[in-house]
Amino acid sequence: MLERALLSPISGRGEQGPRQLARRRQLVAQNAPLVVAVVLVVGMLAIYIVLYAISLSAFPGTFEAASITDHAIPLSLAAVGQTMVILTRGIDLSVGGMMDLTNALAALKIQGGFLTEALWTVIILLIGAAGGLLNGLLVAFGRIQPILVTLGTLSIFQGLALWVLPSPGGHVATGYTSLFLNPNAPSALLWVILLGLAWVAFRRSRLGVQIFATGNDEQSARANSVPVIRTRLLVYVLGGTLAAGAGVALATTSTGGDATGGDVFTLSSIAAAVIGGVSLFGGRGSAVGAICGAFVLTVLIDILFFANVDPLFQPFFQGLFLVLAVGASTLVGRYLMRRR
């Protein structure tokens, strides 16, 4: 069929050997941020174990593992939601407000028997989806920058949270809590692994590819038949739902509800995603990296504790860590680019 003779092929580097090598190098380069994130988690855990062993003359056990995992879960969920949005070159500042609202609702409503609890969980997740839909509609149809849309909805969600729960209180039913948490075993790790696996599958779905394409270049995505508006809408809906999940998780891991308890997650979810190698310029990153970032930030707090750092200095080290991690990775990236 193919008349190769007509085609005067353009041959360049024809040999397979260097090509194979190049491809492997490419694979590493493409996933470098993810590799860095994994290395960071392992490194931080190692430092943690050493410090723990020095100060307590024992190794951390399942209790410690459970504690870290439990603390990392709300942030992991929020960071994955944030990642979805950032991948489309957006940003979701309303994560904190949504977590305020859902945290408050969860603390008030998730109690009184399995059925009510399950029902309210679904309702809360739907509220998250609705909030996300509002963001998505404003971004996709209102043509407003995501940072401004979510700044506005952040304020709205925060207000609604205070309306729902004017002063801290309420708590999630104990039975419900034990579904997620077990103080003696890191059973919550199962949820983390599920979250990671869900991402791996999602990355390989049609919507997954479309999200990456949209974040890469909207025009080009359109040219590739990507329904950009629908993709954006869905991304914010997913982001909102995950933030709602994070709010519920926050309510189960803390003793009571607080309508301002979610505020810090706006910025820490961005920090976790960025440390996990998600590019704020869109189209690059992985939720697995974001989960790693969430664990890094969680373990960092424990490390500071065992390093006898005054807790008041905590934000200092978190900030420093964020700046250094991102600054270093930018420099390394630039160095790699130059070497190419």
Partner: peptide, 25 residues
């Protein structure tokens, strides 16, 4: 109209990717 942060392969095969279990790419 190429997606520059994706590979040549991802671009060429966009929408016609080889799929496996569960229609996953």
């Amino acid at each position: 109209t190429l997606l520059d942060r994706m590979t040549v392969a991802e671009n060429l095969m966009f929408g016609r990717e080889p799929r496996g279990v569960g229609r996953l790419i």
